[in-house]
Design a protein around this nucleic acid. Structure first.
Length: 201
DNA sequence: TGGCTGATGCGA
DNA sequence: CGCATCAGCCAA
């Protein structure tokens, strides 16, 4: 088993990391129940020159504090009062970059994920979209700041899957109109022709 | 196509 | 303090 460690997370180029995360496997083990699947959609947020990033212009609050931690920890926050969005912190300490994981292709213990979602269908809505995906995996704000390198609660694995650049679709990120011109940055990445990604906008 | 939902982080 | 604002989702 090849668990991604700090040498993967603590690199400078968060856009590159966001692309490489496609095809990696995300797992959680929560309440003794192990669930997970393959990452098929990500979004990148960079501390520099990106007004969509919660930590833009060195903005430092209780919520964003974890973003300044060295790469390899979870940043989970509540969105629209309902959804728990799961981000991976990257780069070195005080360079607050993050990758939002937006969708996975379900693989392990699918029936547990269905139960958490209150669905019994084998449809993309099970794990497509950041709120839905987190719910399926059992990720909540309680996991704010947890390490992703211990292989215990939340972790990522490299299982040798390589997604070539011609099989990656880059497009603008969703729901960040407030970011002005930065909303145009093509920092949303998905695997081409994969049915488990969320709908294009 | 709206309504739901609540923490967050601004400005008084 | 109050209040606008969300890195969405689901039922219609």
């Amino acid at each position: 088993m090849n668990i991604l460690d700090t040498s993967f997370y603590q690199r400078e180029d968060v856009v590159q990391i966001g692309r490489e995360l496609l095809g990696k496997y995300l797992f959680t083990q929560i309440n003794g129940e192990r669930t997970g699947g393959m990452i098929v959609e990500t979004e990148v947020y960079c501390h520099e020159n990106d007004w969509a990033c919660h930590a833009h212009s060195q903005r430092r609050t209780k919520r964003t504090e974890i973003m300044y931690h060295a790469g390899g920890v979870a940043y989970v926050y509540l969105c629209y009062g309902i959804h728990h969005l799961f981000n991976i912190i990257t780069n070195v300490q005080d360079k607050a970059d993050a990758v939002l994981i937006r969708a996975i292709e379900p693989l392990e213990n699918i029936e547990i994920m269905q139960k958490r979602r209150g669905l019994n269908s084998m449809m993309p809505q099970l794990t497509a979209g950041p709120g839905a995906m987190s719910q399926a995996l059992g990720i909540t704000q309680a996991h704010y700041g947890v390490s992703l390198t211990t292989g215990k609660l939340i972790w990522l694995e490299d299982r040798g899957m390589q997604v070539s650049s011609e099989n990656i679709i880059a497009s603008p990120r969703v729901g960040i109109g407030y970011a002005g011109d930065d909303a145009l940055l093509p920092w949303r990445f998905r695997i081409k022709n994969n049915r488990w990604t969320s709908k294009a906008k």
